[in-house]
């Protein structure tokens, strides 16, 4: 039928289900609807217990990541029309514990993210009354891309390494550490080094590049990881050749 579309949605409640299962819903097909609109329609009109996160509906808050036909997507930016007339499968993001239906637990990321010391570190703070730290547009460009991360977790769902080794810090956390390391105002790269250079933090990445492919904000976490590995390897060589050097 052209005027409706079928969604197969993964349902799971830890209170009643042993494992996730699929449930089908039929919703009106509208050209300007995104997958999230269809979920909202179901929740409002058919089943108020359908559980998922969303907020901004404009691709910036990072809440609404799910698998759409197996691909990590922001559902507020994924149109039904791109899949119609076939039915669409909606599942929670892969590689995370499922809390309920389409909601995953992301505390692991939050913990790893904080360990990266994602804040500006200065040896000496200039008083605010003395004005801004100067930064040219070129210096801004050096880290800008990595500052665009909305913490949507799509890259974690796409990352084969995170799936196998949950100790791996993961694409976004590393990209965000690099966001500060590359900021001309920051002097904290050394403080971040111990965490970033730990075996599991970064070396697990095998450059599959899936993270960069699925990232809706063009952050290029794979690039961040590659770049950091190079710096870290150089630092390591330096520290072997001149054990006190660079410290």
């Amino acid at each position: 039928m052209a005027d409706t579309i079928k969604l197969e949605i993964s349902r799971y409640s830890p209170e009643t289900d042993a494992a996730p299962h699929f449930q089908s819903f039929e919703v009106p097909f509208r050209r300007d609807w995104v997958v999230l609109d269809a979920l909202n329609y179901i929740k409002d009109k058919q089943d108020g217990s359908l559980t998922y996160r969303w907020s901004c509906r404009m691709g910036i808050c990072g809440s609404c990541g799910m698998l759409v036909n197996g691909e990590p997507k922001l559902t507020c930016a994924t149109f039904l029309a791109d899949y119609a007339p076939a039915s669409i499968r909606v599942e929670p993001l892969r590689n995370f514990p499922i809390v309920r239906d389409l909601v995953i637990a992301m505390n692991d990321f939050m913990r790893k993210f904080q360990k990266m010391k994602p804040w500006l570190i200065r040896k000496e703070e200039k008083p605010v009354s003395e004005g801004e730290y100067l930064q040219t547009p070129e210096q801004l460009d050096a880290y800008k891309q990595f500052s665009m991360c909305i913490n949507c977790m799509l890259c974690y769902a796409a990352c084969p390494v995170y799936g196998l080794d949950p100790l791996f810090a993961g694409p976004a956390a590393i990209a965000l550490a690099q966001r500060y390391n590359l900021d001309s105002r920051d002097q904290g790269a050394k403080d971040r080094f111990p965490v970033l250079s730990q075996h599991d933090a970064i070396w697990g990445c095998t450059f599959v590049g899936e993270c960069t492919r699925v990232c809706p904000k063009h952050v290029d976490p794979a690039g961040a990881i590659q770049q950091y590995k190079l710096t870290a390897a150089l630092d390591w060589v330096k520290s072997v050749v001149m054990p006190w050097g660079g410290k």
Binding site: L120, V128, E132, Q135, P137, L140, Y180, D183
Partner: peptide, 22 residues
Amino acid sequence: PQELLQLEHWGCPWSRQDDGHI
């Protein structure tokens, strides 16, 4: 203005002029 500068000191990537000022 102080508050916006404070945010700059915390790392906010404000857009800049060519000379590096806000």
